[in-house]
Structure formats: C-alpha cells, structure tokens
Design a protein around this nucleic acid. Structure first.
Length: 632
RNA sequence: GGGCAUGUGGCGCAACUUGGAUAGCGCAUCUGGCUUCGGACCAGAUGGUUGCGGGUUCAAAUCCCGUCAUGCCCGCCA
C-alpha cells in the first residue's frame, strides 16, 4: 500500500526540495512532482522512497546516482529532527529510514490518546452531503443486488462522516411507480393472504402479476390504478401507500439486520404533493435548459434539446435522438423530470414543503429514522452542498443527463456537486436478478438479503463449534455473519461486475471479514490474559521498538488517515477493506513471531501495540459496518 | 452505429487517476509449523509474454493510438 504518515512525507519533501533548489535550480520540479515521486517501498529499501532523481537526471544531464548523492549529502543536516534518521542512495532512488523508536512512540501515543478518533480526518470541513441509497421499489424483499447498493451507500456514508462531512443518508421510496401498482393490483385481486415476511410475500404477488400482463384487461386496470395513485386523495392511493409502508417496514428489518442506517426516507407521493415538479420545470424553461415543443414528433411536450449538450460529454456528440422528453404531451412527468426536480431540491434550489415525522426511534447507530408524510413537522433536510447517488452503472446515461441539466441551466458549479457513484451490477451464475422475472427467487434458492444472512449465521454457528475458545455461538453469529457478507460485498472495486458466489460471500478464510474479526479477537485474548486494558504512555519504553514485524505493523497503523481520505475522495470502500487486511495480516505476523506476555522488559511496549492495533482495526472495521467482537 | 465499463498465474482480486526497484494478496495445489499469548492462523514452494498490435519514454500493467473479447446504456419505461 502506498501510504504512510503525512508528516514523514512532508519531511522528505522538504529535504528533497531544498536539495533540488540548491543543486538543480530550474529543473522544473514542482512540489506535487516530489510528492508524486514518493512511494512506500519494500522494507529492505526503507520506509519511504523518492524516485525524483531519475527525473532530474534527465533534465540535468547527470547520472541519477550522482543527483541522489548530492541531495542526500545536503540533507544530512536535517536528519534526526523528525522521523527520518537516515537517507540511502540506491541507484538513484532516495530511500528514507525512519527512527523506529520515535515513530513507534508517536504513532502508538496518537492511537491510544485519540481512541475512536484515531484515523479520522477533517477534510470534509463540515460540508453537507446528501447520499441516496438504495432506493428500491417498495414492493419486494431486497435481493442481493439491492443489498450491494445499500452496503456501498452505508459504508461510503460512514467513510465520509469519518472525514468530517456532515452526512445525510436518504432513501428514496418510489411508491407511485408501476411496480407498486402491479403489486397493489395483485393484493386486491389475487386473493392471497400474507403468510410470510411481508416484503417477500409482496414480491411474490408482483411476480405473479407480471406473468399476467399479456392480458389486456389486467394491464388496463393496472394503468388505471397507477393513475389514481398519482392523483392521490382516493381509496386506492391510500391503499397503495399503506402497502408500500408495510413493505418498507419489512425492508428496514433487513437493513437493520445488516446494520444499515438512514436518516430520512423521501416518498415520491410526498414529492408530488409539494408542487416541486412544476417549480422545477418552470425554472428549467426559464433558464433555457428546456422548452415546450409546438410541432413535430414532440408536439405538446417539454423537452431538452440534446444538441445543446454537445461538448459536455462524448455521449452527446452523436445522439440518437435530438430531444429528451421531460413532460409528456399528456402532461405527465418522465423519470428524468422527477429526478431533476428532486435533485434541484437536494441542492437547495427549490423550497420543497416537506413534513417529517419519526419512522423509527433508534437505529443501529443510535439515531432516529425520519420519513416524509402528509403530516409532521418542518425539518432541515436537503439543501446539501454535495449530492451523491449510489446507482448501478447501467444508469450512467440518465445520470449524466441529470448532471448536464444543471450545466445547461448555467449552474456548472452545481453539476460538479452531483456525483453518481456507479457500481457494476451483481449477477448470478447463469442467471439474472431481474425483478420482473422474479430472478431472485431461483428454482433452487431464494436470493434475498434475508436468506443470505440466515445461511451465513448457520455457517458461523457451525464453525464456532470448532473454536478453541469457548464462545456462545449464537451470541456472535450475527456480528460474524454480517461481517463476512459486508466485507465480501465491499472488498472489490465498484466498477467490477460481480458474479455472485454464495461460497465466496460466506468465506471465512484469507481476505475476508472473519479474518479481520478473528485477528481482533486474538489480540483481545492477549489483553485478557495480561489483564491490561490500557497503558499510560510514560509506562512504555519505546527503546524496545525493533525493525521487525512490530515496526511493520506500526507503520501500517500510521497510514490510517491517508487511507480514509483516499477512500472518501474516491468513494471507495474497497480501499478500507484492503487496509483491514493489511492491518490484520500485519498483526498475525507479529503475533506468530513475537511473544508478548512473558517477554520481560519489552512486554509493555508490545502490549501497547496490541492495544493500538485493536483500536485502529476496530475503528476501520466499523467504517465498513463490521462490528468487532471479543471472542468468536 | 455511438457511448461507458471491464480484461492481470487454474479461480477471485490489488497496483493504473499521480509511469519508477523483483507485478502484491487470497482461494486451489504441494511442503512444514499447535504440551508455548486462539490453527478462522503462520512460514515456504509451484504457477504471470498484465487480451492483442503499435507508439511515447532512460523506464509502461500504468500514458497515447489501433484492435479483439465480454457486459451495460442510447424510449412521450421507471
């Protein structure tokens, strides 16, 4: 991993920079060039390295070795003040070696003092971020694709919070969609009674109805239902909302089981009621981003002229269509229009007269969950500086249009603040997860988030029987199962499409959640045996720091802030997952090679490492929603 | 037709944004390690023309051009 402590980087930068200024003025090397040249090499090469001399050699017409020699020579006087105690020239690379005792002391001190705050960053500066996920149609149980979305959103929320952003987690509930209309029709006409978890049952009704859509009469009835739902204020619209709310309640049970939290749910039916849509359309027309079409194919519609988007993205260079419809000729709004209005509200352009009330008093994170509704109080949601949407990459084009609309309205700055975090959709081996076909209900297995968790728990309990320590399997099954699944879903780059494998998601070995949790539990055992839970810094003799596994582990702990900042900047939970493995495997090596209890004089120093490791590992596990347990 | 993404040992992935030392990790396979802080572990071995072809560079998995394969998107659906 190319991370290390920031102060050490600054230190090396200053030395190198001074050396260049003195010996190679005019070489055109900038500050960022120097930082970019740094990397963390293999341990044998040192703790931090710069390849900048290879570049300077070129412009200066000198040998890299000679360049490095001069810079290192001049740098000697700066050594010993900070972390860097020695510089070595290796074929033109400048390799810095830290004073391991000083570095160990500062890092462990920092961890033990800051505790839960260790690794946090203030880069967000309190900026308000509204992040939307998973926005599942409220008529079915979450399948593993929805779960993936929600886990990404929840984890990115945690990461952004850890970086000083003020995060608002929002779930959009499309209770006016065709899917709810179909489920409602089934509920009213099929005569089945709920006999299982409500969302699961409702999803089954939906699939049944879908198979009946070839019947024109059914289709007509559903269309009529949908229209009444949108109009509101009638028996069907009330029924639809009731149904959707029951489903959402069941969905939230799933979310809670996975420790996924939200701050607020925005219902489409409430959005429609606020009159935001017409306000948004008026603004779009006024700002010249959309216009009423009087003739031709789109007569009577409000459309966006796609030609105007030329240059904003390659997608628009040769568009298939000339226009994108916002308002249909019959006066109804398309998805893009609704989305535009909603995002204008998110970014503070529209007033949006929402009423909020509590849906849940307390979630896993201790905070309440609010919902919009016809009654309730005024609250300060929305008006965010940054709006992030967790949406599958198949929706890239509509998301791009949405973003581009802000540019068209002359608000390029807002366009920049609308971020689509795209992820590759998950698929099953030889199968689809398509909602319409009910693909999540495979013939041999039901691929819902609920069944996955149930299977995982079973496996954990089975595995816990073999555990060397006596553990109450039922007690930890929950945490370990969630940890296994969350890690498996979050460990890879979002862009990669995942072909879901049950076995892999439930993997307990190697690069897995349980491996991290196991590491934590082992560390905890040492403290229990030593009967220590905290140490005062002045009780620790850091002269026992060695250049071995102890120092490698301490260096890993020192990376924390850089890691979380990168994960936040790039919206990538997988960076945290990688880091957890780095910490865990670092500790395992230390653990196998180094005796802690009964090691005599170094014991307290080593215990300090164990305490710190647990702290850092725990802090970062929680970013991914993995709860460390003392025993497993 | 156009756009976007992906392609790295048998399998799953990392490193690519910011070019830099021997391409890193896990699974699988083979060898070794529990009377000693938890074997959900550790140590070691086998396995790679980084899809292919050009180019730029002292240096390319990384940048540029071309090409192939796979997936997704391009509606008065949501």
């Amino acid at each position: 991993m190319p991370y290390t402590s920031k102060t050490a980087k600054t230190e090396l930068h200053d030395i190198v920079s001074a050396g260049i200024a003195k010996n190679y003025p005019g070489s055109g090397i900038s500050e960022s060039d120097i930082y970019a040249s740094m990397s963390v090499p293999k341990a044998e090469f040192g703790d931090l390295s710069s390849s900048i001399c290879l570049r300077i050699a070129k412009v200066a017409g000198a040998k890299p070795q000679d360049v490095a020699e001069r810079i290192i020579g001049d740098g000697q006087s700066s050594l010993g003040k900070g972390y860097i105690k020695e510089l070595k020239n290796a074929n033109g690379y400048i390799n810095a070696f830290f004073d391991e005792k000083k570095y160990a002391r500062d890092t462990l001190k920092s961890v033990m003092e800051l505790k839960e705050g260790y690794g946090l960053s203030s880069m967000g500066g309190g900026k308000r971020v509204m992040i939307e996920f998973p926005s599942v149609n409220p008529n079915k149980a979450w399948h593993i694709g929805h779960l993936l979305n929600a886990l990404i959103g929840d984890s990115i929320s945690n990461i952004l919070s850890a970086c000083g952003y003020s995060v608002e987690r929002e779930n959009y509930i499309d209770d006016l969609g065709i899917q709810v209309a179909e489920s409602l029709w089934g509920y009213l006409n099929l005569g089945n009674k709920p006999d299982k978890k409500f969302d699961t049952w409702l999803g089954e009704q939906y699939v049944s109805v879908n198979r009946m859509l070839s019947d024109e009469k059914v289709k007509k009835e559903i269309d009529a239902l949908m229209k009444r739902m949108e109009e509101g204020g009638n028996e069907d619209s009330v029924k639809a909302r009731e149904l959707a709310e029951r489903c959402v309640k069941a969905n939230i049970e799933t979310a809670s089981a996975y420790r996924i939290c939200h701050d607020v749910m925005m219902w489409e039916s409430d959005i429609v009621r606020t009159g935001m849509l017409s306000e948004a359309m008026d603004m779009a027309v006024e700002k010249g981003a959309a216009a009423r079409s009087d003739e031709g194919k789109y007569a009577g519609c409000i459309v966006v002229d796609l030609k105007k988007l030329k240059g904003i993205a390659k997608d628009f260079d040769n568009p298939n269509e000339e226009s994108k419809v916002l308002i249909r000729s019959n006066g109804t709004a398309t998805y893009v229009a609704k989305d535009l209005a909603f995002h204008m509200w998110k970014l503070g352009l529209l007033k949006g007269d929402f009423r909020y009330s509590k849906f849940l008093d307390s979630q896993y994170n201790g905070k309440p969950l609010y919902t919009t509704g016809s009654s309730g109080e005024d609250m300060e949601f929305g008006g965010a500086e940054i709006a992030i949407n967790i949406i599958g990459s198949e929706q890239r084009y509509p998301q791009l249009i949405l973003k581009s609309m802000f540019s068209l309205m002359g608000m390029r700055d807002l366009a920049e603040k609308l971020i689509h975090v795209a992820y590759g959709e998950i698929s099953l081996k030889g199968g689809t997860l398509s909602g319409r076909s009910g693909g999540w209900m495979g013939s041999d297995h039901v691929y819902t988030a609920d069944t996955l968790l149930a299977d995982a728990k079973e496996k954990v309990i089975e595995r816990a029987k073999e555990s060397k320590k006596k553990v109450d399997a039922a007690e930890v099954a929950d945490a370990v199962a969630v940890g296994a699944i969350r890690f498996a879903f979050l460990k890879t780059n979002l862009e990669k499409k995942i072909v879901f494998s049950w076995d892999e998601a439930l993997s307990f070995e190697g690069n897995s959640g349980p491996y991290c949790m196991y590491t934590y539990a082992r560390a905890n055992s040492i403290l229990e045996r030593a009967n220590v839970s905290s140490l005062a810094i002045n009780e620790i003799n850091f002269s026992y720091a060695e250049r071995r596994y102890d120092f490698e582990l301490i260096k890993a702990m020192g990376m924390a802030q850089e890691v979380v900042e990168k994960a936040a900047a790039e919206h990538r939970p997988d960076i945290i997952a990688d880091y957890l493995i780095e910490l865990s495997s670092g500790f395992s090596k230390f653990y196998e090679s180094t005796k802690v209890i009964g090691s005599g004089e170094p014991e307290r120093y080593r215990i300090a490492i164990v305490i710190s490791l647990m702290q850092v590992l725990g802090n970062f596990m929680r970013l991914l929603g993995i709860e460390p347990v003392a025993k497993m």
